[in-house]
Computed example of a mutant assay.
Amino acid sequence: MSTTTYDASQLEQARKLGTSTLFEASGLSTSAVDVQIRTVWPGASVAGPAFPLECSPGDNLAIHLAMEKVPRGSVLVVSTGGFVAGYWGEVLTVAAIAAGVAGLVIDGGVRDIAALTAHRFPVFTRGISMRGTIKASVPSIGAPIQFAGAPVASGDLVVADDDGVLIIPASQVNDTLARGQARFDKEARVMDRLREGETTVDLLGLAQWRTAG
């Protein structure tokens, strides 16, 4: 199991750059998870090392056991095979906050949405379901998994916000952050020039298409 850690400045930089900029900078089409996995409450964002686990459909025992092993500051990445049920609610949210968990990304479902929002705990999920779960099996905790179209291993960097969820392999985090910052700075200069009256056609080198319209 990886012990990859990121310093506070890296995590803050990742949150500031955001998923869209980092995805474009990464060049990794497999890093973006299924677009149906969205934030529970608008404005939620999180960046932290992944702690992956698998649940059997309709069974959340693996989550409860993982809560005793997850390193502080981690983002739980929970695969359920896309089965939507209430794997997570207020009880696990309170436990996660106490354990120092940074957030949750799950391809199943959650419930107690008002409570999750009130706690301001970042949750990204495929759906919302009042239906509860059983506790009978533990497919895997901490092992690499395929998560909603993206491979994820313990220690990979998870970045999630209103635009979606991104998994950056640990070996490519530094390069992706550097390229993302360069892209962010370039776009900031473009914004300044737009405010001064220039157009996107000129700034993006699209002038040859003016006659096409």
Rank of each mutant, 00 (worst) to 15 (best):
T93D: 11
L116W: 01
T176Q: 08
A114G: 09
L92K: 13
V110A: 10
I97C: 03
F121Y: 13
G132N: 09
A118T: 15
V105S: 08
I167Y: 12
P139C: 10
T176M: 02
T117E: 14
F124Q: 14
A136V: 09
A148S: 14
I128Y: 13
T93E: 13
G109D: 06
P151F: 01
A115P: 00
S171Y: 00
L177A: 12
L116F: 03
V110K: 04
I113S: 10
T176V: 08
T117G: 15
P151Q: 01
S154K: 10
V94T: 12
T117F: 00
I145W: 05
K135F: 13
A98H: 12
A182K: 15
D175P: 01
G108W: 01
A118R: 15
S140H: 05
P169A: 09
L157T: 11
L177V: 12
V123N: 00
I134D: 04
D161V: 02
P169K: 06
I145H: 03
P139L: 10
G103K: 09
S129G: 14
I128T: 15
R120Y: 09
V165N: 08
H119R: 12
P151R: 02
R120F: 07
V152T: 08
V173C: 03
F124D: 11
A96D: 14
S171V: 01
A136L: 09
P122I: 07
G100F: 05
V110C: 09
A102V: 03
V123H: 01
S140P: 05
V123W: 00
G180T: 05
K135L: 14
L166S: 07
D112I: 06
D107Q: 12
Q146K: 14
I145G: 04
